[in-house]
């Protein structure tokens, strides 16, 4: 578990350094996600023989179960920021009603357009390639 956490933090740290260093408008942890993905590809690719030199928790599924544990409780991690919102609701009072309309309408339309375009393109692509996954 500690080895898994260490690896996750290393990926995040390198991601943070790359993001700040290069001034890319992507959060460090998202770059860290890319690095972790690359690590998994190399580990399972086997060309470098990483499986033999890596600590066991990184190859025996502990890393994966640590990840699952974090993702299962993703909701929890938004609580501290959410509680901060409660304290600053005064910022919303002046324009509260108008802001509520903008948030509701735009979020609903954003969901709607995204899902409809996704499905429309899936149908288009699969008509050309009938063996595609449904």
């Amino acid at each position: 578990m500690i080895a898994s956490l260490a690896l996750i933090l290393v990926a995040q740290l390198v991601g943070e350094i790359v993001a700040r260093g290069a001034g890319i408008p992507v959060p460090g942890p998202v770059i860290g996600m890319g690095l972790m993905f690359a690590f998994l590809l190399v580990r399972d690719g086997g060309q470098l023989g990483l499986a033999r030199i890596l600590p066991k928790p990184l190859t025996d599924g502990t890393l994966e179960s640590t990840a699952r544990g974090l993702l299962m409780n993703l909701s929890l991690m938004f609580v501290p920021a959410g509680v901060g919102v409660v304290g600053r609701l005064d910022l919303l009072w002046a324009q509260g009603f108008k802001l509520a309309i903008v948030l509701l309408v735009s979020t609903a339309l954003s969901l709607l357009v995204t899902v409809l375009v996704f499905r429309a393109v899936v149908v288009l692509v699969e008509r050309r390639r009938p063996d595609g996954e449904a």
């Binding site: 890319g34 501290p80 901060g84």
Partner: peptide, 27 residues
Amino acid sequence: YPTYFEGAQFVHFLLGPATVVLAMPLY
């Protein structure tokens, strides 16, 4: 809120690692 956040920051911190491990289901 700042007093609350001193305790809650440990939970808040986990947002970063949780984003990194989105790589696992993706992989």
